[in-house]
């Protein structure tokens, strides 16, 4: 087998994997603070992609400049959803640390959002219309690198770094970490639990919005676009360890590599199966994942 092809696949896998990691980042952040899995995360990504699509189509902005619209809009959306749907569950089930009802409600939300998108926008696959990044390639000898994917990978690293700094260095970030470690103790220190939950959910959703902006330049938008990413994100966060930022990125790269290098050795439709098998293996052998904490499972 030609080494150049393998190198090419590895680069593609790492770039795409980092973008998967970006999608999973929002999920892992919400889990880290609320200790619940947001099953509607893929649908949030879908909403983010539609917001990005319309923001770019209507304003003609560069997709990355449109982030100034997308990020606040998605933050408010997540903030509002947590306040409206998730908070009442935590209040009703006060003595349960991670109520399973949240999974049920967010799964319901997944169905509502996906099918609302189908109702409003129709089943069409939409490609970004004024797309300044369309099909651009960087050439290094025999190796080609897709520019929108490269930008996406850079955006992922920037977002992860920004989140890390926010959590480690700012007052609000410390409050978020305190709430994640021990809700009651944090409340006693004067940290409003609901406000932190709202903000964490908002940030997680905003990250889904960033992923949307990153994906639209090379990925079509359609109502069920979230589903493959949703399931992949679950796999990635368990692989990397629920609640771990860097674990999400490493998990993403592993999945990305399986998907791009795998087809050299098997039918490409099989790679999806390999990813699920790996997921179950991690679940059975080391449920805390690569970077997770033991108490988190």
């Amino acid at each position: 087998m030609d080494l150049v092809f393998i190198a090419q696949d590895c680069i593609n896998g790492v770039l795409m994997g980092l973008i998967y990691g970006l999608v999973a980042l929002g999920l892992t952040l919400i889990f880290g603070v609320l200790k619940v899995i947001n099953f509607a995360h893929g649908s949030f990504l879908m909403v983010g992609m539609y917001v990005a699509y319309w923001a770019v189509t209507l304003s003609g902005l560069h997709p990355y400049l449109a982030l100034v619209i997308i990020v606040p809009a998605m933050f408010l959306f997540g903030y509002w959803i947590q306040n409206l749907l998730i908070r009442p569950i935590f209040i009703a089930e006060k003595n349960v640390r991670e109520p399973i009802t949240v999974i049920i409600v967010t799964t319901g939300l997944w169905y509502v959002l996906d099918n609302l998108a189908l109702l409003v926008f129709g089943p069409d696959y939409r490609a970004l219309a004024p797309n300044p990044l369309k099909g651009q390639m960087l050439e290094f000898g025999e190796i080609f690198i897709s520019v929108p994917k490269l930008y996406g990978a850079i955006a992922t690293l920037a977002t992860a770094g920004g989140l890390y700094l926010f959590l480690q260095r700012t007052r609000l970030g410390r409050a978020v970490r305190a709430t994640s470690l021990d809700r009651e103790a944090a409340s006693l220190m004067g940290i409003g639990q609901w406000k932190i939950f709202n903000i964490a959910f908002g940030i997680g959703t905003a990250v889904a919005g960033i992923s949307g902006a990153v994906l639209t330049p090379f990925y079509n938008v359609y109502p069920t676009v979230g589903i493959p990413f949703d399931i992949k994100s679950f796999v990635i966060v368990v692989l990397g360890g629920l609640g771990s930022i860097w674990g999400a990125l490493v998990g993403g790269v592993i999945v990305g590599l399986i998907e791009s290098v795998g087809p050299n050795f098997m039918a490409s439709t099989w790679t999806e199966g390999i990813v699920y098998a790996l997921f179950l293996l991690v679940l059975f052998v080391k449920p805390s994942g690569l970077f997770g904490q033991k108490q988190d499972w």
């Binding site: 049920i104 409600v105 799964t107 319901g108 939300l109 997944w110 169905y111 509502v112 099918n115 109702l119």
Partner: peptide, 14 residues
Amino acid sequence: LPGLHLIILGVVLI
């Protein structure tokens, strides 16, 4: 109205 019954199902569930 494609997907209407799934919206109803989801809303009722929530």
